[in-house]
Design a protein around this nucleic acid. Structure first.
Lengths: 335, 335
DNA sequence: GATTAAATTTGACGCGCGTAAAATTTTAGA
DNA sequence: TCTAAAATTTTACGCGCGTCAAATTTAATC
């Protein structure tokens, strides 16, 4: 940098200022720097920069399960947004493992991120460790809340979205039974359970639960296996099944197909199946899956905006902001 | 670190050595350091460490499309392997964009990785830029080759795997037509095209190609749209369709379902559909997809081993190693 | 053209650690 | 117990940059 400074005829501290924030130097100087930059192709050393900066421009993005296309899409949306704001996104996946989640957070600590966007594992998260991290680093939770942890939370309004699909299903046919895991790893499952129960009772219906055994994040496998079991046992109390999430639904649809049960609406169909989330693959199932989409652009966008505002403010907020975004009905062929 | 050195009664250079490689210090000293570590919870500063090290312990993992569960699984497998070897994996996705791919490589340069595992976009890659990167940084390509670029390449034996499924399909029914994109973004598509053609001719059959229009990595969408078109136009020259990859097959199956064509083997089925890759969702389609699995554990494992050996050797290999791993037939219900 | 504020330069220190060379201690082998 | 080899300590320098204070230059205002 010293060398580049003499070559370009700019003083080193000014260069340093430029790299920290190009707009902080006079326009004419910036021009000169950028011209020199094109000639000599100098690049600042990331490690030396961050060693002395109190605040790096790294933003950690931690998702529970990257192999889930859903979170892959989330990450894909978040990365360019970070970059546009001049931050460097660092994507980490917990792969469904609470220990890995804590490891991810710890490895983030060592790179001193300006802030972190965290979609926690949820119910299985090591809450104490996560909370400790959030006390040290500005963190915005999204997708799944851990109460009181982090500076803000943005997620889906499960109450609204589940009610939406329950009412749709009830209006167009038999009321739905809820197909869910007995011990779901994701906490949204709890909220959806409660929302379903409430929505059904408000409609004057008795809730019906189809409990799937299994653990882990292999939802499709659980949906397939337990779907087979339920169909074989003739255990469906109604011809309409609402799956707690689309991945379970994908498995359940596979089971129904295998068992020769025609899924869909109208004559000649034995079963209606709906999901929740509008998974990237929901449009390619047989039949295409009716579901509720989450407003993920809003959730991720708001989460990042909030995090950036906290970072810019330079101090942690006193009140923990929370907002839930409504879902939208996506009517396809399965229900 | 100075402070921690005096507190623990160990000299700073020895500590430095320990953090560089715990086995490089005497066992008794290591014990003392680790005991002190538990008492004072000191953590070295990542940036200061890497500033002066000629060789960081970062390994870049660049995949073409993380939203594809296939590469998500690859990444999931690779990460712990890196960590076990004492390296720090840094996962980047090119999101199907050649410019993004080059950006990823450039951002890797700035963190001076010890080596990089690169699954290139392939045909659309900016080959010059990628090649320039590979000259600077030890790089092992996998999944998709760019000739002469990188220190090694490990991938699938498309010739073998396509022949395998073509022969299987031909033996059990009508010979397959190949459903592929006219301008596929992934170069394995070319190899599969050639392999299909050769396999068919060797069987004394005329190759049949079903060309799908479209660009980008939305394979399911392309498969669905073009599948609809082909079925509507009655353009299938045989009752057996081999899709160039599973994601196309997933879309094609959705189209077949929509059009009421029963897919599967045996009586009452109008169509057989097979794929290639054994995609994570291949077991959950309706019907479950018959396909060829790639030996990804071998590919990723070998790639990492080779990269680590290059890093350890401290110099680039003179000959470019290449190995192709055979695929395995996965017989499910669709063909 | 004078005044003032803003931007830049100069000079200097320090961040937390890697790393090298020489001196010292510990360990292993006979 | 002695000796050579290995490990550790001491001492010291430097990495590439952030950052500060004071001096200087530039630009904007009147």
């Amino acid at each position: 940098m010293e060398e580049f400074a003499t070559l370009s005829g700019i003083s080193r501290p000014t260069l340093s200022k430029y790299f920290n924030d190009p707009t902080s130097v006079r326009a004419s100087t910036r021009e000169r720097i950028e011209a020199a930059l094109r000639r000599y192709e100098y690049k600042p050393n990331v490690y030396a920069i961050n060693q002395n900066r109190q605040l790096t421009r790294n933003i950690g993005i931690v998702v529970p399960f990257l192999a889930d296309p859903f979170f892959a899409e989330v990450a894909r949306g978040l990365e360019p947004l970070c970059a546009q704001s001049g931050f460097n996104p660092i994507l980490l996946s917990s792969h469904g493992d609470p220990d890995r989640e804590v490891e991810n957070l710890e490895s983030l600590i060592s790179i001193k991120p300006a802030g972190v966007l965290l979609a926690p594992l949820g119910r299985r998260s090591r809450k104490e460790d996560v909370a400790a991290f959030c006390r040290d680093i500005p963190t915005v939770l999204f997708d799944c809340d851990i109460e009181g942890v982090g500076d803000a939370f943005f997620g889906s309004n499960n109450t609204q979205s589940v009610r939406l699909i329950v009412e749709y299903l009830s209006r167009t046919g038999q009321p739905p039974a809820l197909f869910e895991m007995r011990n779901a790893p994701n906490p949204n499952a709890n909220k959806r359970h409660a929302a379903y129960e409430k929505a059904m009772r408000d409609l004057g219906q008795e809730p019906m639960f189809l409990l799937a055994e299994g653990s882990g994040w292999d939802f499709e496998e659980v949906g397939l296996r337990e779907g087979r079991r339920l169909i074989d046992a003739n255990a469906l109390p109604t011809d309409t099944v609402l799956c707690s999430n689309d991945r379970l639904a994908i498995g359940f649809l596979a089971a129904a197909y295998e068992k020769g049960m025609r899924v869909g609406i109208g004559h000649g169909h034995a079963l209606r199946v709906a999901g929740h989330d509008d998974h990237p693959y929901a449009g390619y199932t047989g039949p295409a899956l009716t579901t509720v989409s989450q407003d993920y652009d809003a959730i991720t966008g708001t989460s990042l905006d909030r995090l950036l505002s906290i970072i810019e403010a330079g101090r942690r907020p006193t009140i923990r902001e929370t907002e839930l975004f409504d879902g939208t009905l996506v009517m396809r062929r399965s229900a």
